[in-house]
Design a protein around this nucleic acid. Structure first.
Lengths: 128, 128
DNA sequence: TTCGTTGCAAATGTTTTGCACCTGA
DNA sequence: TCAGGTGCAAAACATTTGCAACGAA
């Protein structure tokens, strides 16, 4: 990978993601960054989101429901997706990395990582 | 949901998926079904894949790398995605449904299901 | 006859890319 | 200076949808 140069757009995307816990989509990020940098383009947002998630400074969340979402929280955690309102919530659960051990049994490839998404109905949707 | 009527297109998609263990994409399925039904349209393939996965007769696999894939194997299992060749393989591993228990702790919503994808390098790619 | 299903094509939604210009180091 | 970054617009992709005709029950 090439050497990174500073860019205020990239910094601002990263800074924005750190302030949010709702895992916004590229478009939501674009709308928000535009308030500070009205000329930023959606392409730049996508390019930087891809770059940042490639180098592990943010997380890309692909749930299978709707567009990708992004997360600035690097603390290891898993996500819950509400089937009703599509909200994505952080789960405060114990580490389950041990599931990689049974996954590697009877398998001759090399397992390096995993993702888990939990689905159901969120607290708010249960009430309404 | 409305009452289902028989359709040879839908049957043939389902039958095709049962013969495959490589989790084909909608487009691959389309290409293959076309050999028997040259007039089938890609829209019909997508409609039936969505329908079949809605009623639980097939599985939709969204790994975050490339287009969705589909699986006719309903036996509970998890998938491995090769970061190098993008192949999706079945993992023959013990049941890990117990991870839903820790996931539900400290969480007030209702968790009904989960998916897990394991990533790494497949056996073939390790050799080459 | 009814209503789910299909083929076709157009539209949609999301993401990527080419290119000329800009900017950080 | 120069490679990386940006804005813009077009393109690429994957998927969905409207509609008139078709076909199963």
């Amino acid at each position: 990978m090439a050497i990174l140069k500073y860019s205020k757009q990239r910094e601002s995307i990263k800074a924005f993601l750190i302030t949010r816990t709702d895992h916004p989509t590229a478009d939501t990020i674009y709308m928000n960054i535009r308030e500070k940098y009205p000329n930023i383009s959606l392409g730049t947002v996508y390019r930087n989101l891809a770059l940042l998630s490639d180098i592990g400074e943010i997380l890309k969340i692909t749930t299978g429901e709707g567009p990708d979402r992004f997360d600035g929280n690097l603390h290891p955690h898993h996500h819950f997706v509400c089937k009703k309102c599509s909200r994505v919530l952080d789960l405060n659960m114990e580490n389950i990395d041990y599931i990689m051990e049974p996954a590697g049994k009877n398998f001759n490839g090399q397992i390096n990582s995993y993702v888990t998404y939990f689905f159901g109905i969120c607290e708010d949707c249960l009430k309404n």
